[in-house]
Design a protein around this nucleic acid. Sequence first.
DNA 1: CGTGTCCTTGTAATCGATTACATTTCACTT
DNA 2: AAGTGAAATGTAATCGATTACAAGGACACG
Lengths: 314, 314
Amino acid sequence: MPDQVSPSARARVMAAIQATGYTPSALGRNLRSQSTKIVLVVVPNLANPFFAEILRGIDDELVASGYGLVIGNLDNLPDREPRYVDMVFARQVDGVLLFSGRIPEDSGRLMNEAGIPVATVCVKIAGLPYVMVNDGVASAQVMEHLFALGHRRFGFIEGPVGNINAIGRKKGFRKALKKAGLDPDAASYWPGDFMFESGVEAGRQFLALKRRPTAVYAASDHMAIAFMKTVTAAGVQIPEEVSVVGFDGIEFSEFVTPTLTTISQPRHALGRTGTQVLLEALGSDCRPRSVELDAPLLIRESTGPAPKTKRRRA
Amino acid sequence: MPDQVSPSARARVMAAIQATGYTPSALGRNLRSQSTKIVLVVVPNLANPFFAEILRGIDDELVASGYGLVIGNLDNLPDREPRYVDMVFARQVDGVLLFSGRIPEDSGRLMNEAGIPVATVCVKIAGLPYVMVNDGVASAQVMEHLFALGHRRFGFIEGPVGNINAIGRKKGFRKALKKAGLDPDAASYWPGDFMFESGVEAGRQFLALKRRPTAVYAASDHMAIAFMKTVTAAGVQIPEEVSVVGFDGIEFSEFVTPTLTTISQPRHALGRTGTQVLLEALGSDCRPRSVELDAPLLIRESTGPAPKTKRRRA
DNA sequence: CGTGTCCTTGTAATCGATTACATTTCACTT
DNA sequence: AAGTGAAATGTAATCGATTACAAGGACACG
């Protein structure tokens, strides 16, 4: 059926369209087709530039497939979730993409029960397809690098409690220590929430230590950068006295002094791939696949050989 | 009409809702009410953290009013615009918020002709209400600060050609020079696009100068930060040899070394206020107002007294 | 010339919530 | 007890695009 409508009819319709400026209303179409060509993307915190780049990847893919993008910004506030669950049940969107570890699994599962496809990016929820980097593998890379530089005493700035990525990174950190014959519990752990302020606090606690780690691994670039800022302000040399590694590979990590060694998350690809997974589920009934992406370690100025110590810990 | 429906009827309906898990479909409602309770926000570049914070402000206000948020990311690509103009004409959104200076006025005007409210944030389009900071006034503040520190030789890193904010900032810069009895054309001007890379390039050009400015004013923090990074890497001391001022007040401006003196745009307030203006237009037929917000100068470490020179320019 | 097939066109039903209007029920007054 | 008003329920129309189906028209072939 290359041309279901006669040329003359087509011409007349086109002329009428030109004359009246007619545009088909999406409202009627949506009701009839029971679809909106819109995907809901739920993000824990819209202001986080890390998510912004993933969003761009998502948008690129959605635009290519003719879908629109509505943002559900949770602002890290759990009480904002029901709003978006409702949106799903009201059929206002054709599919959902969930981000990061803050969304209770309940909401995700709830949405899935509404009968529309749900996929997750940077987080796993049982039963849902996901796209993420393997945090444990990434941590292993980081530690391998630090071991090679001779470091034996470590600090770790944690992510938010319960966050799946934070957990994965910490587990990888501890596993690497154990594998190297070190006691994971001998390392210093500082609480954090991925944000600047917690990096500052970690820096203060680091400075207060008599016997400081020679390498600090932060679960996010933000915390790593704030940590660096805090300890260098106190006269500590990086990387001469302490090496610092971040996680995420945000743009700014290259523009701090010293430039930050970090795991570069393929943010754009995470967004694109996540969207592809979702669109596949949207297009067919086939079981959607999950994907793990590689995250390379970018070795820059903030890591160097471990300082010589007078006496080494037994 | 405190209670239009009898308690018994209400109870029965509620029971039925519980029993069947019924949720009203937004599709039918939208068609009937000829509205979607969704606002389209068109951003030039989603990955820019500067916009992210404004988006958060917008979202906060929209959520409070029960509206949803669809993002139109142009990615600085003009060919992505028609898509969103179509969305407007298809009545898929109740209102539009336009960002920044990249959107041709045509699209904005076109959307306005579709009969739905359009407001702009950080940009003026004739006939549309806007919310923005006064770039000229902000530039005047910057220059006043630099004059007070004794600076007489200036460099300016420009924004994208044709960008209304970039133009306003440059005009304010030149006006302040003239007012101080200096020749605006004697200053150094380096092209830019608000992004990192152009700050790096400006830094290179600065380094190549025999007679360098003692103060550099960049039309964005990104460019200022990249500029600082580039010239400090070449051994130039900030602020001893050159003072640097940015524009925007992004979060990172506080975490670079030295911390950046900059104009702090009230990003969250810009978003909120812009949304309020739009919602007012949505709620009534009254002529929407435009708003200008104040942007304070944050004086930090990157500006200091002008260096003593052997011979001063006549 | 008649009939069958194909192509057009026209009419009506559908999607689901909303709203206007008609009808019924009930309570309360005179 | 009849009548008036308010409340409650029921019925039908509406929003605009889509789609199924029926009726009309053209053409060709036997």
